[in-house]
């Protein structure tokens, strides 16, 4: 459940972050400002508060929002903002030269973006995105507060029912740690490898 939630939210974020990042770079006056504000607000409000706003706030008006859907929407929206920022970093890391080379070859802006810049941004963003994914995995734990049955929910349940109050939580912690440590190692290795290709 935790993993599913994380993957769903990450997927939404990875896709939704693209238009958001592009809007941020837009030279049309209003759009950039709206994009920035959106990103700042999405990142500035704690995830749990967002989930509450969506589930309790909107949920009373729109009955189809069950805990899981609310969680996916909430975490998905937040991911869009974070991924947009990651893409922004990736875009600025790619030298101007790439743009110019593409345009000199006669490709339109759209093509340059899709075929030349896009793939490179993706590659550059992978380490940052991976480390965000790890964070998201842990953040998904807040979904329990609105009733999503995931790890922390079970732990809390066990803790209250059984006489062993501390144990289930430690087990939950262990599960999270076990999930994130391989990801952290992989990120470190990936980061080292990618850094090699970007020689100083």
């Amino acid at each position: 459940m935790t993993i599913g939630l994380t993957v769903a939210a990450l997927g939404i974020g990875a896709l939704g972050g693209i238009p958001l990042a592009l809007c941020r770079r837009s030279t049309i006056p209003g759009i950039s400002f709206i994009a920035v504000s959106l990103i700042e607000i999405l990142r500035g409000i704690p995830p749990i508060v967002w989930l509450f706003i969506i589930y309790f706030g909107l949920g009373t008006a729109l009955p189809m929002l069950d805990p899981l859907t609310s969680a996916i929407i909430g975490l998905g929206l937040i991911s869009c903002a974070y991924m947009a920022e990651i893409y922004r970093g990736g875009l600025s890391a790619i030298t101007r030269g790439q743009w110019e080379a593409g345009e000199a070859l006669g490709m339109g802006r759209q093509s340059v973006l899709t075929f030349i810049i896009g793939p490179q941004v993706f590659r550059v963003s992978v380490p940052a995105a991976a480390s965000y994914a790890i964070g998201l995995l842990k953040d998904s734990s807040v979904a329990y507060t609105i009733g999503v049955s995931e790890i922390v929910y079970f732990a809390n349940d066990q803790s209250r029912q059984s006489s062993d109050a501390l144990g289930p939580f430690f087990l939950a912690a262990l599960v999270y740690v076990i999930m994130t440590i391989p990801c952290a190692w992989a990120t470190r290795a990936l980061d080292a490898r990618l850094r090699q290709k970007v020689a100083r």
Binding site: K138, D139, S141, V142, Y144, T145, V152, A155, N156, S159, S163, D164, A165, L166, G167, F169, F170, A172, A173, Y176, V177, M179, T180, I181, A184
Partner: peptide, 20 residues
């Protein structure tokens, strides 16, 4: 371990788990 455990879980450990 400190970084791998979500803050939420750490909170629960100290508040709910410790009294035992």
């Amino acid at each position: 371990i400190g970084r791998g455990t979500p803050a939420l879980v750490v909170l629960q450990i100290f508040y709910f788990g410790l009294p035992a």
